[in-house]
Simulated assay, not measured.
Amino acid sequence: MPTGVALRDPRRQLFAAAERVLLRAGPNALTSRAVTDEAGCAKGVLHRHFADFDDFLAALVLDRVARLEGQSAALLAAADTGRGTVVGNLADALTELFESIAVAVVGLVVSRDGLRARLRRTRPTGVPLLADAADMLAAYLAAERDRGRLGPDADVATLAPTLVGAGHLLFADREAAPPAPDEVRKVVAGVVAPALPPGEGGGSPV
């Protein structure tokens, strides 16, 4: 007899269930049974839509990567309009990124050899999500450099991954409270200060 409930959008609902398990219990608790139980559906539903569990996890990671497109567009719009400050915009971007499921997804990628191997087929270098976040910040920093809010010699290819690494360390402890906004801004300011033109402050975005 069939078990579970019918899903209107199986992929999306399975992804949402996996994210809840990840946030609640971490990568080690993420199994196909845990996902389908969380989604309230039969285990066979997952395997009707994905070749195997690593295929499902790879699709989950790439779905999170795709969601960076909206955040990247907002950052570039801030650069185009001169909204906020470079420090404030970067601090907000890192907070938005790492207060979400991103830290747990990175832990998932690091902890599962099969998932990393699956992702390497199309993404041979870098850690997915972290590498994409670095690309997003590099594009934003380059736009700010072009508009004069970063110095002309600002090395955005170094600044971007440095910011992502620092942000990941700040948010990586799942057991502790998230860092305070002032703490995030302090770290960002320390990284980008040498690239800011004289007199460029780190006030809050408007």
Rank of each mutant, 00 (worst) to 15 (best):
K186I: 01
A16P: 11
R147K: 14
A104D: 13
F15N: 09
V21Y: 03
T125L: 14
R83T: 13
V87P: 00
S72E: 15
A77L: 15
G126N: 00
P198W: 02
A6E: 13
G4H: 06
V86F: 03
V192D: 01
K186W: 02
G107E: 14
L137V: 01
L129R: 00
G44A: 11
A193P: 00
A93E: 01
R120E: 12
G26F: 06
A177N: 10
P128F: 00
R48D: 08
P152R: 07
T36S: 03
R116L: 14
D135L: 10
G203N: 04
V110L: 15
S72T: 14
A176W: 03
V110N: 13
L141W: 03
A160N: 04
S204E: 15
P27R: 02
R8D: 14
A39Q: 03
A6C: 11
P124A: 10
V192A: 03
L68R: 12
V105M: 15
G88A: 04
G88W: 02
T31N: 06
L141Q: 06
E38W: 07
G114C: 11
L170R: 00
G70N: 04
V206I: 13
D153L: 15
L30C: 10
L22W: 03
G4D: 04
R120C: 07
A139G: 05
M1P: 12
A73L: 10
L46I: 07
A176S: 13
A160I: 01
D132P: 01
A74D: 13
Q71P: 04
L137C: 02
A131C: 05
T85H: 02
G84P: 10
P161V: 06
V105W: 05
R120L: 11
T122S: 15
L46G: 05
L90F: 00
A102W: 06
A180Q: 11
G44N: 15
G107Q: 12
T81K: 14
D92G: 04
R185M: 04
A78V: 08
D132C: 06
L7Q: 05
P2N: 09
A77E: 15
I101R: 05
R121F: 11
A104I: 08
L68Y: 09
G151T: 15
A39F: 01
G190P: 03
L169W: 09
E183Y: 02
D146M: 12
A42R: 12
N89K: 06
E183V: 14
V109C: 10
A180E: 13
A154Y: 01
V156I: 12
L62I: 09
A16I: 12
A131N: 08
L170M: 07
P178V: 00
G199E: 08
A117T: 15
N89H: 07
R116Y: 14
L97K: 05
A138M: 11
V21C: 06
G4S: 03
S204G: 14
